[in-house]
Nucleic acid binder design. Sequence first.
DNA 1: AATTATTTTTAGACTGGCCTAAAATTTAGA
DNA 2: TCTAAATTTTAGGCCAGTCTAAAAATAATT
Lengths: 222, 222
Amino acid sequence: MDILTQTEENYLKAVFKITENDEKVASTNAIAALMNTSPASVTDMLKRLAGKGFLNYEKHRGVNLSEHGNVLATNLVRKHRLWEVFLVKMLDFSWDKVHDIAEQLEHVQSDELVERLDLFLDRPQFDPHGDPIPDADGKMTMRKQILLSTLAPNNEAVLVGVQESAATFLQYLDKMRLSLGTQLKIIERFEYDGSVKIMLTGGEEITISHKVCENLFVQKTK
Amino acid sequence: MDILTQTEENYLKAVFKITENDEKVASTNAIAALMNTSPASVTDMLKRLAGKGFLNYEKHRGVNLSEHGNVLATNLVRKHRLWEVFLVKMLDFSWDKVHDIAEQLEHVQSDELVERLDLFLDRPQFDPHGDPIPDADGKMTMRKQILLSTLAPNNEAVLVGVQESAATFLQYLDKMRLSLGTQLKIIERFEYDGSVKIMLTGGEEITISHKVCENLFVQKTK
DNA sequence: AATTATTTTTAGACTGGCCTAAAATTTAGA
DNA sequence: TCTAAATTTTAGGCCAGTCTAAAAATAATT
């Protein structure tokens, strides 16, 4: 019986997001910060979700997803990203506007809907921010991408994803004419503040801050 | 400040549905029956929604929508029907499966989403069950449709809508090869039980019950 | 190692949305 | 018209999800 409330689903997603990279467990505080709620509320919910078998939880030790919880969370990510593709590709939304709407759409319950949407969109592998879309079995194709901040001068690369997807950041990229697929070459890295001068296709040269570099995923092309 | 919970929205829709035809007001019991809830719960909610200005409510008198509430409810109907069109036209769902999914999708909050969806679907005027879709200003094009049960023998007509949209009824129509746009001619009406023999395009003759006739909207063609 | 700072949990309370049972009101019938 | 039936509302309580404040546990610092 896998009928969770939207709130419960959001908690699972939060744990997923926090633990998907390095972290082994998600802390109460981290979850509270991510969800704009109080640590006390988080503790309550963690106990509920652990009781239902979606989380592994020991007092004061943080949580992570059980196998069952992981399936649920992955499916939510799949739905979220598929809807984002729909919004951008079909409804012509800009990539900085789709997150909030997809947050709502991802909670619609219908396996058949997801399957048909996936088919309609031609089984996309990446969402508008370059994030991989899990397939119906939870598998996703990973790219050998690196952060732009780790790339040495003279290398050439193509922008394939963003780490952060806050609207303000995406709008900044739009202004700079940086979009997924953009080819670029590292001209110079300034050690003083970590900013980097890059050349875009067409020869235009721009300088971007270290913070921006840390939020751009690229693949080396030469 | 028009942020309602999904439940509140569902109550407004229920009042809309009950009062859209003949009834001047919706009774507590009628709402409770439609929403599968108890009359006591309905009374609670009616007071809340009236307090927020969405309903006109006097004790023991039933309710109807305020101007404000009517705008909200109409917009919900618009969203519901647009999503149904999307599901059938774009995702190739059959018309008996879309209601429940649209019930969820209609609660997604984004005016821009609705506008873009409407445009994407080419501003449809009717949903897959033949119901009119309100435009952004709440106006809808009404057809001069009548119930098949009121049509006399020898008249020819085209099926343009269904009154009831329960899955079992729609599946029955599919089996009988009755779909929107189907041309038909009344051959004979049996007074005994109100059933009617009709001829479809192609010459096939079928007999349908009075109950079915009362749930089919047609337009006379001759 | 002892104390301080941080994190996490508990306790108690609030709202929304629901319930059942009982009271009040309206409607229908004799 | 007066009583019975049906409808509606009130009363009181439950659960999910949230909060603040305080207590407990863990981590950091001296």
